[in-house]
Each structure stands twice: as structure tokens, then as C-alpha cells.
């Protein structure tokens, strides 16, 4: 009996080894471990054995059965792994095919640049204020030291609706409104972005509608050097730390002294090239110290308070920063233009 069992084990293990697929393996299982298999047969014939032999042979038979089962199990795992591999091989895809496009919207370039500028000034403690696009003559001009008939009104040819109402020509009225609202006894530190309108024929550098961001800081002891420092921070943040600014005297009715700010040319860094028309500098914005009349009209005592103000055109900033060559691009909404600025 013992020999028989050992022979069976060798024979069965050999067959497991020889099995070349899951089905053959199953056949081996049925053949050796099945109810009609030889081991079962041995166990059935145990009755003929002596009392002493019975447990010994029984144990041996179980061991043999276990060993075969184990071998089958092991072989089965191998076949399963092969099976999976084969299946996965069949599932192979072409990873170079295009993906399913994700939604691809994005902000308008003007929004991006305005938000960028807002964030720079927010970082320096400024608030963002907004105001109406249809303004009164008072807030658009008179409160800014531009009485009726002032020659400087020509600098900003306007779209009037009635004699007293017009489309604002700058966002400065928001400054006057804010100062009035705050009431002459607290500091004002704000920027005001928004749409403005002037009687210009649309061409590559003019647009009857454009955007402005103006800034205002009124407090006790505001100095012109503060304006220079703040604008320098702004210019370096927007255009790069390697850029320099230059202030030139200028004229605006609402500031005195007034400045025009240039930034060093990014191409030649002040040497002079075609981009900057050989001057080395590119004009960016205007500003100055708030005119005492403006402070007075807004309820601030110019003997106690002083302030600076500045204004810039985000279109111009964007044109310089990204090399946009025609201001009309901002309003045509050509998706081939818009999409260029959806990137990080």
C-alpha cells in the first residue's frame, strides 16, 4: 500500500508538471483526487488493513493527497497569471492617440492683466473700488479740477449723453466719489479699474472704449517719493525685477506736481533700439501728487492731507508685456487671440 501511494504521488506530480493548460490540470485533479481516483480507492481499501497499519496509511494517503493538491494549486496560479497577462496584452491601447479634450475656457487677457495689477496693489495695502460708467460732468471733470471751458478737457474728448451726463473718460471719478464717501478724515488707499470711453477713431493704437486702472493714496504726509517707490514696485512685479523706471514732469489738471512714468526698454535696457524708438524708455503711465483743489472738493484739508494718484491703461500694459500689436484685438474677441492667454 505504502509503495502504491508513493508511486501515485510521483506519477501525479509528474502529470501536474506536464500539464500545459488549465484544462489538463483539471483532468489531473479529477484523475487523482476525484471520487473515483486512485487515492480515494486506497482509502476505501483501508478496511482490509490491520488496526496498526490503518492510521499510518491513512496519514500517508492524506499527505499524498495534500501534496498533489498543493502542486495543482501552484500550477493553477501560474496558469492564471499567464491568463491575465494574455488578456492584458490583448487590451493594449495606442497611448499616442489624442485624449478626449477637457473643457477649455479661460479669462480674457484684459481680465488677467487687471487681476494681476489688482493683486500687486492689494499686496501693498490698496483696496479695489468701482463706480458707474455713465458719469456726471461734475465727477468726471469738475471735481477733478477741470471746470467747464478748461483747455485740458480737450485732452479727453468725451461722449456726452446730455450736457451733464457723459461716458466717463477716465476712472478718476471713482476716486472723487470714494474720497467724498470716506469724508475727509480717514486715509484712502485704493485702485479703481474699469471701462472708459473717449472720442477716438478705432485703429491700431486707439479705441473708443478701453480700460483704465487708477490708483489713489491720500493720507497725512504722503510724499512724491512714495509714489516713485510704489510705482517702481509695481513695474518690477509686472515687467520683471530687471526693469527700471523713470519719472518725467508732465501735466494733469488733477495732480501737481505731475509725472509721466517710463519703463526701461526690455529689449535694450535703456540703450536705445527700434522697440523704444531709440530712447531706451517706454511710456507706461501718468500720475502725480493730488492737486489741492481736488482734495478740497472731496472734503480733505490740503494742509493736513496730501496724496498721490496715478492711472494706466491695462491694454497698453498688456501690449507691452505680451507684444500685442493692435488694441482692437482686445475687443474683436477672435478665439485664436483669446486662447493664447488661457495658459498659466
Amino acid at each position: 500500500m505504502r509503495e502504491k501511494l508513493e508511486e501515485l504521488q510521483v506519477e501525479a506530480l509528474q502529470k501536474v508538471d506536464d500539464a500545459s493548460d488549465a484544462k489538463e490540470l483539471q483532468d489531473v485533479r479529477v484523475a487523482y483526487l476525484g471520487k473515483k481516483g486512485p487515492i480515494t480507492e486506497v482509502l476505501r481499501g483501508m478496511g482490509k488493513l490491520s488496526k496498526e497499519e490503518r492510521p499510518v496509511i491513512g496519514e500517508l494517503a492524506n499527505k499524498v493527497r495534500e501534496k498533489i493538491a498543493q502542486a495543482i494549486e501552484q500550477k493553477k496560479t501560474v496558469f492564471e497569471a499567464q491568463e491575465i497577462e494574455k488578456k492584458l496584452a490583448e487590451e493594449t491601447i495606442d497611448v499616442t492617440l489624442p485624449g478626449r479634450p477637457a473643457p477649455s475656457g479661460g479669462p480674457h487677457l484684459l481680465t488677467s492683466i487687471v487681476e494681476e495689477i489688482e493683486d500687486i496693489f492689494i499686496g501693498m495695502g490698496f483696496e479695489v473700488r468701482e463706480g458707474p460708467e455713465v458719469e456726471t460732468d461734475y465727477y468726471n471733470f469738475e471735481a477733478l479740477n477741470l471746470p467747464k471751458g478748461h483747455p485740458a478737457r480737450d485732452m479727453q474728448d468725451s461722449f456726452y449723453i446730455t450736457e451733464e451726463l457723459l461716458l466717463r473718460t477716465h476712472t478718476s471719478p471713482v476716486q472723487a466719489r470714494t474720497m467724498n464717501a470716506i469724508g475727509g478724515n480717514k486715509p484712502v488707499k485704493m485702485i479703481c479699474p474699469g471701462k472708459v470711453y473717449r472720442r477716438d477713431t478705432d485703429d491700431a493704437t486707439h479705441s473708443h472704449q478701453f480700460t483704465q486702472i487708477e490708483g489713489l493714496y491720500v493720507d497725512k504726509n504722503v510724499r512724491m517719493s512714495d509714489l516713485k517707490g510704489v510705482l517702481d514696485r509695481f513695474a518690477k512685479k509686472v515687467f520683471g525685477e530687471d526693469r527700471e523706471i523713470r519719472l518725467r514732469p508732465s501735466y494733469f489738471p488733477f495732480t501737481e506736481p505731475s509725472v509721466e512714468m517710463d519703463i526701461s526698454c526690455k529689449v535694450c535696457h535703456g540703450e536705445g533700439c527700434n522697440v523704444c524708438k531709440q530712447t531706451g524708455w517706454i511710456e507706461i503711465l501718468g500720475g502725480g501728487m493730488v492737486h489741492p483743489r481736488v482734495l478740497e472738493m472731496a472734503g480733505y484739508d490740503p494742509k493736513v492731507y496730501s496724496g498721490f494718484a496715478f492711472g494706466m491703461g491695462p491694454e497698453r500694459i498688456a501690449m507691452l508685456k505680451y507684444g500685442v500689436n493692435d488694441i482692437r484685438h482686445f475687443y474683436t474677441n477672435d478665439v485664436r487671440f483669446l486662447n493664447q492667454y488661457h495658459k498659466a
Binding site: G125, M224, K228, L247
Partner: peptide
């Protein structure tokens, strides 16, 4: 002030940042 500044030279103005109490800023 402007006359003095422009002949003195805007280039010679220092760069400073506001020293006032200010406010937190923000949206």
C-alpha cells in the same frame, strides 16, 4: 513744488514706500 522738483531732477527723488497707518487692502 513741481518747478523745484523738475529742475532738481525727478531722477534724484528717492524711492520710498508709504509709512502711513494704511489699511489691509484686499478685495
Amino acid at each position: 513744488v513741481e518747478e523745484v522738483a523738475r529742475i532738481y531732477g525727478y531722477d534724484h527723488l528717492p524711492y520710498t514706500l508709504p509709512t502711513g497707518e494704511g489699511n489691509a487692502g484686499g478685495l
